[in-house]
Design a protein around this nucleic acid. Sequence first.
DNA 1: TGTACATCAGTGAACGCGCGTTCACTGATGTAC
DNA 2: TGTACATCAGTGAACGCGCGTTCACTGATGTAC
Lengths: 217, 217
Amino acid sequence: MAATGAKTPRERYRAQVRAEVKEHAWEQIAAAGASALSLNAIAKQMGMSGPALYRYFASRDELITELIRDAYRSLADAVRAAAADGADLAGLAHTIREWALADPQRYFLIYGTPVPGYHAPEDVTGIASEIMAALLDAGAALAPDGSATPFRTHLEGHRDWTGDHPAPPAVLHRALSFWSRVHGVLSLELAGHFTGMGFDPALFFAAELDDLLSVRA
Amino acid sequence: MAATGAKTPRERYRAQVRAEVKEHAWEQIAAAGASALSLNAIAKQMGMSGPALYRYFASRDELITELIRDAYRSLADAVRAAAADGADLAGLAHTIREWALADPQRYFLIYGTPVPGYHAPEDVTGIASEIMAALLDAGAALAPDGSATPFRTHLEGHRDWTGDHPAPPAVLHRALSFWSRVHGVLSLELAGHFTGMGFDPALFFAAELDDLLSVRA
DNA sequence: TGTACATCAGTGAACGCGCGTTCACTGATGTAC
DNA sequence: TGTACATCAGTGAACGCGCGTTCACTGATGTAC
């Protein structure tokens, strides 16, 4: 009975093939979007027959779910690593932007158009809340609490999502604002809605960030 | 030779069938996303054979482009109607939100995950800039110009997009911020990223709007 | 008003394609004695 | 170290499906005289 962590050669091989399948999947997604992802096409790229992939993934849906999980995991790791390095909210914002620019379709797999009826498994939403937790921590270190507002009062009684990261309403509000503003600029930029407008998206991103961090009230 | 605007019965019929095709297309998109849209399925829903639709649309791509055009047109009309009714930026924000909530997948067809390689025809980008123009006008009426910032200085020399709506840099900046923040909250809400967090998205939207409109500096 | 012709909507068959997935089988790799 | 057996990766054929699109044709609707 092998220890859970130890890997037999066969397990190693399996893990490597699985990883290779995912790499080709990401390439396909980058090239034509997630809806164009095809198991048979991946198999062909790897020089295997189509059915061979079913040794590694039970179905196309399982592969996609796994990709979504990996994407969340990758972003959460990047954010946590930055936070561990002492990054403040501005630092996290740039970490997220770099992560998104590195592979826009990976970003959109998480934050883009939802597929009606699809619900991510629970462990995935768990990873998503890791990201929020990092934002909350960085937001708490930023500045003293702001004044009460209707929304902050509302948040007092509606903070199901904060888990083991309690924070005053102004900090919760700040984290939500940060998230939605970063996402707003980023997703417009990545979707190409700024192309042809002439200005530099990086400067706009920086300006949004400046405004966001100049806390008042 | 009939006047361009006059419609023969056949033209009327054609227009009606085209409209009906589009209606079914929107239903399919709402139910399963744009990538699942199928001409054959639409034909079946209408009780026709598949090839019949080729009398009305040259291809699947042409239909989708037409849907994108209609979506932009619909949003631009809604925004312009609100502006004509005297709505300020806050009013426009709510108009946009209502429009998006009425059909989330229609919103995402415009502002969601881009399909790599797809480029909207020129007239569509023209409609998109109508929307920006309305935001610029409403933003100009809001408050005096703010102070200079690096991004506003940058905008002085990079305002290709403003067309015949000249405005001081602070107003351009305000319109961009408005757009990206409204989109940020809306797209997270519509994609379901707030579900399970407990708070009311409408209140968060209102809070973002309040912050956005409390101009300072 | 009636007839001859042109226009055009819609059909059914067909083409070629790629998809996800199942299944019986071969051959190589690892395990137990 | 060698043999017998179990495990497992990968293949090729096949199923059923739906897709976009083309084409030759029928039948109805509109137009011209």
